[in-house]
Simulated scan of single mutants.
Amino acid sequence: MTDPISDFLTHLRNASKAGLAQCVSPHSKMKESLAVILKSEGYVRDVASGTDERGHKTIIVAMKYVDTAPVITGIKRSSTPGRRLYAGYSEIPRVLNGLGISIISTSKGLMKDQDARRNKLGGELVCTVW
């Protein structure tokens, strides 16, 4: 596994398309803060941590649906290990004219695009969600 963030986003995408109640993935601090941002923006219902049968820490994301339609209609990795994408605060792209969010890795941690623009912080474009 060369890109754990991309793997986590694929777990979320597949769980929402399949209509699963929850998504379980290996834990990391970046995945946890990414899931917390998705929860605060209303894309997922709940975020919790647990352990698997071997004792490894996992992150459990409860998916959110509106009338059996997934709230996450699209989620895309922007920056990859082979091609890092960075943007200044004025160059952060708007997703679907403000209907979606970009998640940026700044020096102050992960932030959604509006918060990064407000705090005048640029950084690595992690993903876009709509």
Rank of each mutant, 00 (worst) to 15 (best):
A87I: 02
A87S: 09
E91V: 01
V71M: 05
Y86M: 10
I72N: 02
I75P: 08
V66W: 00
V66Y: 05
K76L: 11
K76F: 12
S79I: 01
V66K: 07
G88I: 00
L85Y: 04
T80R: 11
A87C: 07
A87F: 05
D67I: 01
L85E: 08
P81Q: 03
G74T: 08
V66H: 03
R83Q: 06
P81A: 02
A87Q: 09
S90R: 11
K76N: 14
V61T: 13
P81N: 05
T68H: 11
S90K: 12
R84H: 05
S90P: 00
G74F: 04
G74V: 03
M63P: 01
T68K: 15
S90G: 00
Y65M: 12
T68Q: 13
Y86T: 07
K76W: 04
V71C: 05
T68L: 14
Y65N: 11
T73D: 12
D67G: 02
G88L: 01
I92M: 07
I72E: 03
A62N: 13
E91N: 09
T80Y: 06
M63Q: 06
T73K: 15
Y86I: 06
Y89F: 10
M63K: 09
R83Y: 03
A87M: 06
I59D: 00
M63I: 05
I60C: 12
Y89S: 08
M63Y: 05
R77W: 03
A87L: 07
Y89P: 12
I60P: 12
K64T: 02
G82P: 10
I60S: 06
G74M: 12
I72Y: 03
S90C: 00
G74R: 15
T80D: 04
T80M: 09
R84D: 03
V61P: 07
T73L: 14
T68D: 15
I60W: 04
A62K: 15
Y86C: 08
M63L: 15
R77G: 07
K64Y: 12
A69C: 10
A87P: 06
S79N: 05
R77A: 07
I59T: 01
I59H: 01
G82V: 08
D67R: 11
A69M: 15
Y65P: 10
R83F: 04
R84Q: 11
A62Y: 06
M63F: 02
P81T: 02
Y86R: 10
V61W: 04
G74P: 08
T68V: 14
M63C: 15
V61Y: 05
S78N: 12
E91I: 00
T80E: 07
T80A: 08
Y86E: 06
L85R: 13
A87W: 04
A69N: 13
E91S: 11
Y86A: 07
R83L: 11
A69R: 15
Y65Q: 14
Y86S: 09
E91L: 07
S78G: 13
P70K: 10
P70Q: 06
I72D: 02
R83M: 08
V71L: 09
Y65D: 09
Y65W: 12
K64C: 00
I75A: 10
P70M: 08
I72F: 07
D67T: 03
R84S: 09
R84M: 10
G74Y: 09
G82D: 05
T68N: 15
D67L: 04
I59N: 01
V66A: 03
R83E: 03
Y89R: 01
I92G: 00
I72S: 04
I75E: 13
A62V: 13
I59M: 04
D67E: 09
A87H: 04
R77L: 08
A69W: 10
G74C: 11
K76V: 14
